[in-house]
Design a protein around this nucleic acid. Structure first.
Lengths: 207, 207, 207, 207
DNA sequence: CGATAAGCGAGACGGTACGTCAAGTCTTATA
DNA sequence: TATAAGACTTGACGTACCGTCTCGCTTATCG
């Protein structure tokens, strides 16, 4: 792409801008991400910002992605444990985002297909994949009924987390997550009793 | 409140402005709600708009509320039917909203506690109440297990609808709703088999 | 005109509004005469104000006229004394007006012939007439040269007072007025020496 | 000051805006100087205007100053000629200003000390300086009495011009100026007769 | 005495312009 | 090229005040 011709981009600028953006996101929310201000705080010119990200939305998204990091699906062999852990991870990862930030980005996505795609890919898919992975393993182990609609179940589980983040007064706590996972598993498990016993055992070990 | 003193507000103006706003919301989304333009289209002055709603956000919310209207909890005596019907109603009510509108409003709520409150009260609570009502009746009939966490179950059901509206590629269709309701009910039902049989019967009658 | 039919106007309202206007004029200047505020302070409705004065300009002018009151030409028989007294009266009458008020009214007169006329008639002419009267008497007494252009001399004398009010850092004080009157009289007097001697005598009497 | 950093201001914008403002001033008067309109006519954005002048008042003043240009004191050696010429120059320079413009600016000065200062410095002082210069030279030549109060005489002469511009039905014409100058000089001259003879001679030469 | 004609307070209404803000683009000079 | 600085366009915001109009109510005079 940039094949060495001319002055190379200063990598420190990328970092400084992202940091300033994250800070703005934290303290003021998305609408507080004012490019001129971000640039000033990063000790950088507006030009340098726009050279890297085409607009505010993408900058914010980049900052978000930077912060979210990776969510890895746990794999303990205990279905209930895995799912519970998954949802806790997701909740925590998003918790620090101001409510508005994610919503705003979703909103902006309405006018910008590319953004929507990136948002999905970067922010939404990773947690979904983790949940999917856990359920997939569970099914392979024979823990789930054969007729379970996997994608729908993935949605059912992750939706609650996002819903509470976006619209609830506060995000889910571990007990609530446990209750939901148990309830839902009862609906999809081949042998719910066995799963619950296994889960109880693990909990004992943990405590 | 306004005890007849002074010239009364012209109710037609309220109506005209809301209509113009809804139209803008439909065709351009939230960011297309430009007060000056809305006023112009409603044949009304900007002042008249600002006299009623303090800013764009509140206007948009009012228009939304106006459009959403009431969602009434069905009461057929068949738990599965009720819940299914509920979710279908909600999905349809929100479907016509541009994706972004709701998200945008949620986002704006981050900066405006009053708006957030109204948003909850006006937009979010009504569907929740309908679902709650259905579940409440079901429990009274003894259809649900005694240890069911009702509010959490309400969330679990409504969350999926909103999640798909906000973040999904498209909203839920009736089949998917059915699958989810069945799955979830399996987790909370006192006697899932009975409920399913009843549901099947009703469906026969309908077809 | 208003032949007694209907409820008669409340004279107290006229007074209260004028007073409030004058106060506004004093403290904030013409641009501080905000009708709504004036009405509020007078304990009166906007309607009542507009029923009496067609607009802000006329209201302000009325308040000004109310305050200026009458300026009577002195007639001591001593030309220099009369003129001096005249100019002092004028200066004092206008002194309390905020600089801007008069200027603003003049400015508004550019768009409003009626206002301009009234402004001239009510505010500007009275002092001019007093000066004119003094000079006229002086000429009749034979104190002035026969070829003196009376209107121009009137202008020359009053102009300085207004100039200092409108554009100067501060209005004229009595010493300055004396200096000017003497200088100008030297130019128009039939026998300047005599007039000065007479003036000196009067001053002695006064002290 | 601006040491070459950043994009330099476009001088054409200054010019275009001032021109548009002057035009508005001429055709509509001060109240016709509508920033949005001026910007449009200058083919420039409102922001660009506000970057240069903090508000309407200052813009109008700048336009005025731009138009008034310089008034240079004549120096013919003939006191009467110099003064006459001075006043004619001033009258002409201001004649084209709509009556209201100057008055309005004076009025606005009441609320804005900075404006008042600039107004004095830019608009009022130059003509005063020209008159002062003429009188100063005259005194040096011994044409004036020794006890003459120079500043006051300057005021006496210029005041009439401004008075007629602001409050008169029309500005002074050369004959009137001549009459006034002669009258006033009679009051301050060391030897009025000599000055008048000199003046008469010059007039002959000119015709 | 009741109809008629104002006056009045409260406040909605249309209108016009204001000055502000931030986004994103463009133009210099410098590194 | 990249960068900093900052000018520039664009488009909307929310505010302020003007002068008008519409209510419901009060006060006078006239028939």
């Amino acid at each position: 792409m940039t094949n060495g011709r001319g002055r190379p981009r200063d990598a420190q600028i990328d970092a400084a801008v992202l940091e300033a953006t994250e800070e703005a996101l934290d303290t003021e929310g998305y609408s507080g991400v004012i490019i001129e201000e971000v640039a000033r705080r990063a000790g950088v010119s507006k030009t340098a910002v726009y050279r890297r990200w085409p607009n505010r939305r993408h900058l914010a998204l980049a900052a978000l992605a930077d912060r979210l990091g990776r969510i890895e699906a746990p794999n303990t062999g205990c279905t209930l444990c895995d799912l519970h852990e998954c949802l806790v991870l997701i909740t925590n990862a998003f918790r620090r985002l101001g409510t508005g930030t994610l919503a705003q980005l979703i909103a902006e996505g309405a006018d910008d297909a590319e953004l929507r795609e990136q948002l999905t890919e970067i922010v939404l898919e990773p947690p979904r994949r983790a949940v999917h992975r856990s359920l997939f393993d569970a099914r392979r182990r024979g823990d789930l009924r054969d007729d379970v609609d996997l994608p729908l179940t993935v949605d059912a589980l992750s939706s609650l987390v996002f819903y509470r983040l976006l619209l609830g007064d506060d995000p889910m706590d571990p007990q609530q997550i446990e209750a939901v996972v148990i309830t839902l598993l009862r609906g999809v498990a081949a042998d719910a009793g066995a799963l619950l016993r296994e889960f109880a055992e693990h909990e004992v070990h943990l405590s």
